[in-house]
C-alpha cells in the first residue's frame, strides 16, 4: 500500500517524529509502535513534524489520542508542526487544534517545550 515512514530525532529533551507519506489504518500501527517505544524509554516531550505527511486518516489521528493522555500525565505533550493545509484541514474538521498545540515551524514547538521547562 501507501508508503509511510517515521524518522525519530533527538532534540534533547524533545523528540521529533518526522512523518512521511500516508498515515492511515494500514500504517497507523507503525506510528503506534514508535510512540510506545518513546514512552517506554521515558520520553514524553514529543514534536510531530508533519512536513512530509501527505495524508492522515481518522485511524492515524486515533494514534495521537491513544498516547496524549499518558504523556501529559508525565508532564510531557504531543505538539505538531509544519502541517500542510490539507492535513491541517483534517485536524481542524475534528477540532484537533483545540486539543493540541500546532505550530508553523518545528523550532517553535521545541521552543515551547523548553520555555515551559525553564519556568
Amino acid at each position: 500500500m501507501s508508503d509511510f515512514s517515521i524518522k525519530v530525532r533527538n532534540e534533547n529533551p524533545v523528540h521529533v517524529l518526522e512523518l512521511k507519506g500516508y498515515l492511515d489504518a494500514h500504517t497507523a500501527p507503525k506510528l503506534e509502535e514508535t510512540f510506545q517505544d518513546l514512552i517506554n524509554k521515558g520520553h514524553h516531550k514529543i514534536v510531530v513534524n508533519c512536513n512530509d505527511l501527505s495524508y492522515i486518516s481518522s485511524a492515524g489521528l486515533g494514534v495521537f489520542m491513544a498516547f496524549v493522555e499518558d504523556v501529559r500525565e508525565q508532564k510531557g505533550d504531543i505538539k505538531f508542526s509544519n502541517m500542510s493545509q490539507k492535513v491541517y484541514n483534517v485536524f481542524d474538521l475534528l477540532g484537533f487544534p483545540l486539543l493540541y498545540e500546532i505550530f508553523k515551524q518545528e523550532g517553535e514547538a521545541i521552543e515551547k517545550f523548553n520555555s515551559v521547562q525553564s519556568e
Binding site: S58, L61, G62, V63, M65, A66, E69, L93, L94
Partner: peptide, 8 residues
C-alpha cells in the same frame, strides 16, 4: 470508548 477511537 477506546482512547484512540472517536466519532465525527
Amino acid at each position: 470508548i477506546d482512547k484512540s477511537a472517536f466519532i465525527s
